[in-house]
């Protein structure tokens, strides 16, 4: 067995360096599965020869930078890896993805989340992610129109897909969520607390499944 190195961490998490990355990036216990990389260091980082399986990018990312790095992102996916982006896209750097569309809100009911059957959200109740101490709107306030063939996981009223999986735009898998980084969600004491661990588990299983997909192809 080779000794653990940061280059072999399963997760690569880009750090925007913003004040709020204290919670969106660094919260929770020290995590040996994750390498945290300053976003501007991605430019010189040898992503191809590192063994990361999952690239995690949150709402504070510099999307002007990501446009410049889009070939690197696509190549990472085409090597059979996963990109998980949580935020609002306003530049084109995720294959197949469209720009964020804010929801027109006339009532708090416009924020009610419908959970479709998927292991990431198994056992999670709609009200536990829709409301935070009785207030709706923290979770998601819009969506990215889905590429053809994508699988929707969560919706806002009117069939608006706020979270989807795209296995067709690249040889890897894209998980796109129009909200916060679900791997760093705060402990809430209700069923929404299940998401974090279930997402970690799903990401690793999905990565293995991509390899199987390649073999079958």
């Amino acid at each position: 067995m080779s000794p653990f190195t940061q280059q072999s961490a399963d997760y690569l998490l880009l750090d925007s360096g913003a004040a709020f990355s204290g919670t969106s990036v660094h919260s929770g216990q020290a995590d040996s599965m994750t390498k945290v990389l300053d976003q501007y260091d991605l430019v010189s980082y040898d992503l191809e020869n590192a063994n990361h399986k999952i690239l995690v990018i949150d709402e504070f990312i510099d999307q002007e930078l990501m446009v410049e790095q889009k070939d690197k992102i696509k190549a990472f996916l085409d090597r059979g890896n996963i990109v998980f982006f949580a935020g609002h896209l306003f530049r084109e750097w995720i294959p197949g993805a469209s720009m964020f569309v804010p929801k027109t809100v006339t009532s708090y009911l416009d924020y009610v989340v419908t959970i479709l059957d998927h292991p990431i959200f198994d056992g999670v109740k709609s009200e536990d992610i829709t409301y935070n101490r009785g207030v709706a709107g923290f979770f998601s306030r819009g969506h990215h129109p889905m590429p053809e063939g994508a699988e929707v996981l969560l919706e806002l009223p009117g069939g608006v897909p706020i979270t989807y999986i795209d296995r067709t735009s690249t040889r890897g898998t894209i998980l796109l969520h129009a909200g916060r980084n679900l791997l760093k969600s705060r402990e809430t004491g209700n069923s929404s607390g299940r998401i974090r661990e279930q997402l970690y588990k799903w990401l690793i299983e999905e990565h293995a499944a991509i390899r199987m997909r390649e073999v079958r192809a």
């Binding site: 925007s16 360096g17 709402e59 504070f60 510099d62 999307q63 935020g87 609002h88 306003f90 964020f100």
Partner: peptide
């Protein structure tokens, strides 16, 4: 400007 979505908006 650091290129983030909320700043852009």
């Amino acid at each position: 400007y650091s290129g983030s979505a909320h700043q852009h908006r």
